[in-house]
Amino acid sequence: MIRCVDIYKSFADKLVLSGINFDIQSGEIFGLLGPSGAGKTTLIKILTGQLPFESGYAFTLGKNVGDLSGEDKRNIGIMMDEFGVYERFSCIENLKIFADIYGVAHVKIKDTLEIVGLGDAVKVKAKNLSKGMRTRLQLARVFLHSPKIIFLDEPTSGLDPQTMKSIHRIILDKKKSGATIFLTTHNMEEAAALCDTVALLNEGVIVEKGSPKEICRKYNHQKKIELHLSSGEDVLLPHGKESAGEIYKLFEAESVETIHSSEPNLETVFLELTGRKLQEDA
């Protein structure tokens, strides 16, 4: 569905994407995970034909992005943080514009607004919507014409956990209905919860890719045992037999309050690979 082969892109003298390679299969949720400024949005713009690039090949819907026709674009839905809505128009009026462009029946508009949880805000003007509701309206606009590929650029950025979870449910429902989803995020929990495959992007380079579980397994050497002692102290020990003696001593002294193992997650893997935190700039 989507393929990148050795893509290079720079702005002025600064290289923002360097040798990007990946394949995304139909029906997959692919997450591009990286801190702000890593090149995530630039890659979406390239894959949707909004931005030219210096070298390499980019294919969307199996076609070179430069050759995407009007009919191809109809099969692509894009939601970018910077995209606006018509402030003076209500939710339904906003969607009517795009329903007319895509040739979608107007009866589908209300259904789409229901799906994204805006069923009660059909007539609310966009300028009066909260950030979460505005994101839902943008999602409704993307879903309206049932595109085969959906690009979501940080769809839950700045949203409260409850809204974030409900948007995750909507995204997973879209996957179930057969859509291929490309999403960018700097939230490792979001990537782990949603994505079949993730690529970790740092300063324009993909430093790791695979399923979230595979990646975490690969870096399992980071596994630790965390103990919280009754003195209030936290102790971090290697996950191995060398720690057994010390743990035994602590238990014997009845000073252990809690104990659990700490597996690596995408955040710690990213930190190990790049020395940077995913959300350091967020």
Binding site: T48, Q50, G70, K73, R74, I76, I78, E82, F83, G84, V85, Y86, E87, F98, I101, Y102, R141
Partner: peptide, 13 residues
């Protein structure tokens, strides 16, 4: 300014 023009362009207008 409000980036609605880009949305229209991406919708194949």
């Amino acid at each position: 300014e409000k980036n609605t023009l880009r949305v229209l362009m991406m919708a194949n207008v």
